[in-house]
Amino acid sequence: MSKDSQGPLWEVFVQKKAGQPFVHCGSLHAYDKEMALENARDLYTRRSEGSALWVVPAAAIVASSPEDIGPFFEPANDKVYRHPTFYQIPEGVKYI
């Protein structure tokens, strides 16, 4: 038997409550989809930390590179009009 690493690596994302985003909370090894899902439930939601789970083979994830930080992300820093703090709203105006 070649490598005995207990199956490929999977990344686990938990959604705490309906409506909230899925958040990465860790990884695990599993041999197939069903096992990955069950193991994720046992490993990462024992303390009622979530209502829904995604498990993704680590190999399927495409990640940005640290070198990308400049071109990928910095232009957004300049465009302050995308942030609510850019706008001045007179005091006393509600719901805005």
């Binding site: 090894h29 193991n39 046992d42």
Partner: peptide
């Protein structure tokens, strides 16, 4: 037989 399954059976 492996860690993840150890936890599962203990559950």
């Amino acid at each position: 037989p492996f860690l993840e399954e150890d936890l599962a059976l203990t559950n």
